Simulated scan of single mutants.
Amino acid sequence: MLTRQRFESSADGDLYIHTRNLVAELATLFCGLAACAVPLMFLVDGFFGGRWLPARLAPLEILLVLLGLILLGVLGVAVLLLLDVRETLFLSHRLARGERRKRNLFGGRERVHAMFALRSATALEMRVYRTDARRVVQAWLLMADGTEQRLTPELMVLRPGQPRTDRWLQVLAGYLALPTPDRVIELPVIGALPAPPAVAAHRHVPTQTPEPATRRPAPSNRPSHADPAPPPMAADGNRLGWFARALTGLLGAFLSLVALAHAVELLGALSMGRLRVASSVHGSGHTYLWSEAPVGYLMHAGAGILGVMVVGLLGIACLYVAVAGRTRRPR
């Protein structure tokens, strides 16, 4: 009921199956608008109400508040523009391939999530994967060479016997010229779902006999000019776009400022031998003195130092990712 599907056939004979999940779209819209509304409300209240930041705040605290508001607004925009909540299954006999495409809430930023060949398709199967948490029903396309490809959109929940599921299977089987699956195959999978659909898995892997050591040719010291050149390196899939780098940089700067503010406060408390620890949201707390309670003073000081180190390292890591433009180092 909360999933919408639209079937579209192009003039070239291609099939488009558009899937929308209303729950995911509403949740994305609410979170994005709520995150963008907080900085806007602060600006409106400041301009028209004259209530800006309190004068008793330190410059570092003012910078931290402003950076947090900017980060919250950017996060709201990122949720609205970067999250993929719509999916399209593209099938083309003309191109002999299929694609699973994803788009954001507004139908833009389309990207190909998986691509597979349609030649030599032999069967269409419905499978049930039973995990520890749920029961997942998926549709798989089987090829003559033993490979298989998942066709079920991530935003769609298949329920055998329902009219929407039957309609989706009939359109899919009719376009692929395959019989509609009339039974569901139970596969006892516990703990995790199958491998991602971007990599086709082989159903039958032949057993390979280890080759005897005597058949291996001896290494030659002469340079071989007949060997083919090594394949070019694949494009680095871990590189981030400019928007993701800006968002990661803002998050790293915010975490670094949080760690710096707590470090300055902690250094002041350690230099005076007086450490105040908040215990509730109403502002009350307890003050530990080195001369009266050294054990409690050391415990809370150590916890504060550990928290500053963790938050600071996270901020530095985010800043490194923003500057380098990738999530991990290239091999």
Rank of each mutant, 00 (worst) to 15 (best):
Q5N: 00
F7P: 00
E8A: 09
V23S: 07
V23D: 06
V23W: 07
L26K: 00
L26Q: 03
A27Y: 03
A27W: 04
L29I: 00
F30W: 01
A35Y: 05
C36V: 05
P39H: 05
L43W: 14
D45Y: 07
G46A: 10
G46L: 01
L53R: 08
A58G: 09
I62H: 11
G68R: 06
L71I: 07
L71F: 15
L72F: 07
L72Y: 09
V74D: 10
V79C: 05
L80T: 02
L80F: 00
D84C: 03
E87P: 06
F90R: 14
F90H: 14
R94K: 05
L95H: 14
G98C: 11
L105H: 00
L105I: 01
F106C: 01
G107S: 04
G107F: 01
F116M: 02
L118D: 14
L118R: 09
S120Q: 15
A121M: 14
A123M: 11
M126F: 09
R127Y: 09
R130D: 02
Q138I: 11
Q138R: 10
D145H: 02
Q149K: 06
L151Y: 05
P153F: 03
E154Y: 12
L158N: 14
R159E: 15
P160F: 11
P160G: 11
P163R: 08
R164N: 07
R164A: 12
R164T: 03
T165K: 06
W168D: 00
W168A: 02
L172C: 13
P179Y: 10
P179N: 12
T180F: 07
R183H: 15
R183M: 13
I185H: 13
L187H: 15
A192G: 00
P196M: 02
H204L: 11
Q208R: 10
E211M: 12
P212Y: 13
R216A: 12
P217A: 15
S220F: 10
N221H: 13
S224G: 10
A226E: 15
D227H: 07
D227S: 14
P228Q: 11
P228C: 09
P231C: 02
P231I: 10
M233K: 04
D236Y: 13
R239H: 10
L240V: 08
G241F: 12
W242Y: 12
W242V: 08
F243S: 08
A244I: 07
A244V: 12
L251N: 13
L257V: 00
L257I: 03
V258Q: 13
A261P: 04
H262V: 06
V264I: 15
E265G: 07
L266T: 04
L266S: 00
L266K: 00
G268H: 08
G268C: 09
L270F: 06
G273Q: 06
R276G: 04
R276M: 04
S279P: 00
V281F: 02
G285A: 02
L289Y: 13
E292Q: 15
P294R: 11
G296A: 09
G296M: 08
M299Y: 08
A303Q: 05
G304C: 00
I305N: 00
I305P: 01
L306Q: 06
V310A: 10
V310I: 13
G312T: 11
L313K: 10
L314D: 05
G315S: 12
C318I: 04
A322V: 11
A322C: 08
V323L: 14
G325A: 05
R329N: 06
